[in-house]
Design a protein around this nucleic acid. Structure first.
Lengths: 350, 350
DNA sequence: TTGAATTCCGTGCACGGTAACGGAAATTAT
DNA sequence: ATAATTTCCGTTACCGTGCACGGAATTCAA
């Protein structure tokens, strides 16, 4: 039924005896208006409860915003591939409101590539940027540049200790370690746990697994202070070495039945684990990579903890789009995503 | 960078040597166009890849769509309160594109109230309707009416066996019973299980718990064929009777440590369970009602399985809005939501 | 007091599409 | 052949804002 009659810029022009041009000037406070007129207009806006018509506005100024997404290149089946998939989802909904999205990728092991791509990104003149902070120093200088240019930006996955960002979307890392420990032990007494770790990437300076491991260890300390915790390091690019490392470990520790990994690469351990099955074993990993989910289905992995990276970039893009188009600020800056528990029984509809 | 030059209705008018009026007529195929012109325009549209400008369109036809949500009244802390909260979320994003949402509530125990409210809803002349089917017959006649009037509608929560709906958003019910059983047993041998049930609502003809229970029982049959399964019925409006029923049951079956409930009301059992704690007990329920989540936090309930009812109505509304505004059909009709596993360790950020 | 410089404001076109209106062309009826 | 319809199409006035342009009113300089 007849919704509240929309009041337009003309209504408040008539009300104040001024012209729409003047009203428009105060709305976008771009000067050339006398104090008296300014006050009158503001008052009328209040009283009539004027709200601009987004369509007309966008139509008039020819829309076309651009949002840039700057994340590591997504090798097949990697974590960042999942994140990248959120771009398409967001694109589908924001292109209809005149927003384009450009995806910039860099090599997460190469600072120079980050610098270069960041430069290109700036040249594209975006109205907003989605960032995954990998290199601390570089991220800092980039965000400074963005701030100077007045370009809003959002962090996903993790965030530095700065404060100028528009919003952050990510998983509560420390808590995720806790949850992980709880899922691994399943309330049963546990005597020993194996943590599989990737040899530290030299360049990566912002590493989510640090906090996660801290949470995990705290949980274990509190609940199973006697539990022995072993670490095995593997090289992500060398399957044979991985196989050998695990093989060596389990030969000397055949009693260890709880295995965990704090990054998205539990699938690297799957070939060995699958070849040496143990119905009593419990394996917990992170992130819903295809390879990980397959391992869930075939029973090699017991539980995955997911954080919906695609939702993270989707939300970041939506937030930037709303800000760019309507100037709307998000209700809060930090958005901690729900941690999804995935088992073979609920992985299908994920 | 210079985005693809938007091609307008005028471009294709020039291209075909016709006027924009004619082009508009074929775009909305409202007749009064010769076959030859029609074909020419269609071809030009294809070739140039024309896409209408939503803003201009909405501006011209004065926007203002209305979407109606027809779900049971949300008594405090009920399942439907969660669903209703999705309305606000959706409202925030669609009002900016000129869509209003009206919320109609009926008494889920009173068919007449459904009829009355449905009538009122139709009078409001919505461009789309979100429905939770409760009364089979009534739902059927309502959807027929909607179909006749050409009003699209979406189901949430559950759906009847019809086919005219635009989309459905809900949990895979049978599977959720499976998941529930897996979470309840946690891979351990289980000898006996208690199912707490609500005495059948006489009127409710579409009951999600039926399928859920079927899935649960199948899982138990397959994995623990020896397990005894008991049922206790309670009256949702009589806490004392509930207390008594559980008390009686557990006095004669003190060994039963696995308790499950297939609707959203596990919180009804919480007072008893909390008063008679058992660290060995495992309790699984459904839906993230506040009372249920509290029980999760204090340890009375072990696991809740969530289906994001708010997301369901949110998505349903978004889908209807896109259809109403842009005529865009959803990629598929049936959308099965992910089943969230909630424990005390990941309930906070839900 | 007159001319120049400011300050302030109204006018009018553009944005891309919608739909009513009316008229030309083609068809049918008389 | 002419009138009466039908069919088909172009014209035009919006929808609500943004913004450039130019002019009136006011202030300042000479």
């Amino acid at each position: 039924m007849a919704a509240t009659e929309k009041i337009t810029i003309m209504d408040i022009a008539r009300r104040t005896g001024l012209s729409k041009g003047t009203v428009d000037r105060v709305l976008h406070n771009r000067g050339e208006v006398s104090k008296k007129s300014y006050a009158k207009v503001m008052e009328a806006i209040q009283e009539l409860g004027y709200e601009p018509n987004v369509f007309a506005s966008l139509l008039a100024k020819g829309g076309k915003h651009l949002i840039a997404v700057l994340i590591p290149a997504h090798e097949n089946g990697s974590f960042w591939e999942l994140a990248a998939s959120g771009i398409d989802k967001a694109a589908a909904s924001v292109t209809t409101v005149g927003v384009d999205i450009v995806h910039f990728e860099y090599d997460q092991y190469d600072i120079d590539s980050f610098r270069k791509v960041a430069g290109k990104m700036l040249e594209a003149g975006p109205s907003g940027v989605v960032l995954a902070p990998m290199f601390q120093g570089e991220t800092e200088s980039l965000t400074e540049e963005l701030q100077q240019r007045g370009i809003p930006y959002c962090f996903i996955d993790s965030k530095p200790d700065t404060n100028g960002y528009l919003a952050y979307f990510g998983m509560p890392l420390y808590k995720s370690g806790y949850l992980c420990a709880d899922q691994l032990t399943g309330g049963r007494d546990v005597l020993s746990v194996l943590i599989i770790r990737v040899r530290r990437d030299r360049f990566r300076q912002s590493d989510p697994t640090v906090n996660r491991r801290a949470g995990f260890l705290d949980y274990m300390m509190e609940n199973y202070p006697e539990c022995r915790i072993d670490n095995v390091f593997i090289d992500p690019n060398d399957p044979e070495e991985t196989e050998a490392a695990l093989s060596t470990y389990f030969q000397t520790h055949p009693d260890v039945r709880h295995v965990v990994m704090f990054n998205s690469r539990i699938h690297l351990a799957v070939p060995y684990l699958q070849a040496h099955p143990d119905p009593q074993r419990r394996v917990v990993g992170f992130d819903n990579l295809k390879a990980n989910m397959d391992a869930l289905r075939n029973g090699t992995v017991s539980v995955l903890i997911g954080q919906r990276p695609d939702e993270q970039v989707n939300l970041a893009i939506q937030t930037l789009a709303e800000y760019a188009i309507l100037g709307k600020l998000p209700p809060r800056k930090d958005h901690f995503m729900h941690m999804d528990i995935l088992t073979s029984y609920n992985v299908e509809d994920y």
